[in-house]
């Protein structure tokens, strides 16, 4: 799509008297009425002005991309999530549906799923069992329509030397032929959905907030991409879309929700949201289901019979960087070893 702006100005030799601030308009007067104008200076002025205008147009040309990739006036004028009425939301969902359809030629199932009453989500992770296979990382990518190229990953598995919980000593990029490695243990880190979230506090536009069930969400239509939240998060949980996310058409997850895994534009933040499009409908998050070891536990901490309540009651639990006061909803725990393992004849219990 051409901006009409460009052509109009270009056909207009010089920019008239409207001070458009472009370079080379030394004599910004109507040409004909200017005495003493040489042919050369006329040409110079014209060339300069045209060049300047064209440069201006060029600097505006990224706007054309916006019109191409789903920018709409409606989105621009959309209200803040918390101020949207049901019909506002339906309009927004219709727009997103149309955008996804236009881009992928697939019809998504997109809703705005609200928190459940009497539910506060908690996650627990068993460090005695995790083997560092990174299946959770990639199940998450697939579930949440993260960009594949460059690949964005919400979960970071850290390979930790045994005997310390100082994550500065961990390796994020381990790449062994096989895991687990005997001298290390593995600590997956993702958004901790803190009860006292620093990322929410620093957001200058309230594009991220905490919901009643404890999930910290991001409205991708409201985010301005300043990345303050990324800097504020002590757990490296937030990710920024440096480029337009690209997802192969056959990999798109069509089960979408407004605050979770709908396709994101370039220039906004995103992060783990406990798969809220699944969990608010009672299902388990994708990272939990794929874990081959059962290290991951998820549930409603207000329900006394939930698995996470059992973990908190019976296991040795800790949170990461407790001293920074973020009050995470993500707990790590260790198991007692099975006493049978120590009676092996080979002396397996070292």
């Amino acid at each position: 799509m051409r901006l009409p702006l460009i052509d109009e100005h270009r056909s207009d030799a010089g920019c008239g008297s409207g001070g458009c601030g472009c370079a080379g308009t030394s004599g910004a007067q109507p040409v004909a009425s200017r005495p003493g104008m040489t042919r050369r200076s006329f040409l110079r002025t014209t060339a300069g002005a045209t060049g300047g205008l064209a440069a201006l147009a060029a600097s505006l040309s990224p706007l054309r991309e916006l019109t191409g990739d789903g920018f709409s006036m409606q989105q621009f004028l959309q209200k803040h999530y918390k101020e949207m009425t049901e019909s506002d939301m339906n309009k927004a969902l219709d727009r997103i549906r149309a955008q996804v359809e236009q881009r992928y030629e697939l019809r998504p199932e997109i809703r705005d799923i609200k928190p459940l009453d009497g539910v506060e989500f908690v996650y627990a992770l068993n460090l005695s069992r995790c083997i560092g296979c990174r299946k959770c990382v990639h199940a998450c990518v697939a579930e949440n329509n993260q960009s594949r190229d460059p690949e964005m990953q919400y979960i970071r598995v850290i390979e930790m030397p045994r005997g310390t919980t100082d994550i500065e000593q961990g390796d994020h990029h381990y790449d062994r032929p096989t895991v687990p490695d005997e001298s290390h243990y593995y600590m997956p880190v993702q958004c901790h959905q803190c009860a006292n979230p620093p990322c929410v506090k620093v957001c200058p536009v309230e594009a991220t907030w905490q919901e009643a069930d404890g999930i910290v969400v991001v409205d991708y239509d409201w985010c301005i991409g300043c990345r303050y939240c990324e800097a504020a998060c002590p757990y490296w949980a937030r990710r920024f879309n440096f480029t337009t996310p690209s997802i192969p058409r056959d990999k798109l997850n069509l089960n979408m929700s407004y605050l979770s895994n709908r396709p994101r534009p370039k220039g906004v933040m995103e992060k783990c949201h406990f798969c809220l499009h699944r969990t608010r409908q009672g299902r388990m998050p994708a990272c939990l289901e794929v874990c081959p070891t059962g290290s991951r536990k998820f549930g409603n901490v207000l329900d006394p019979d939930s698995e996470v309540r059992e973990v908190l009651r019976t296991k040795r639990v800790f949170v990461l960087k407790e001293d920074v006061g973020t009050l995470p909803r993500f707990f790590y725990y260790f198991d007692e070893r099975d006493p049978l393992r120590n009676i092996s004849v080979e002396g397996a219990g070292s």
């Binding site: 083997i131 296979c133 990174r134 690949e151 994020h172 381990y174 062994r176 096989t178 895991v179 081959p292």
Partner: peptide, 12 residues
């Protein structure tokens, strides 16, 4: 559990 190959990590 048999040891297994880890899936690719972050490319950062």
């Amino acid at each position: 559990y048999e040891p297994i190959r880890p899936l690719p990590g972050p490319h950062t």
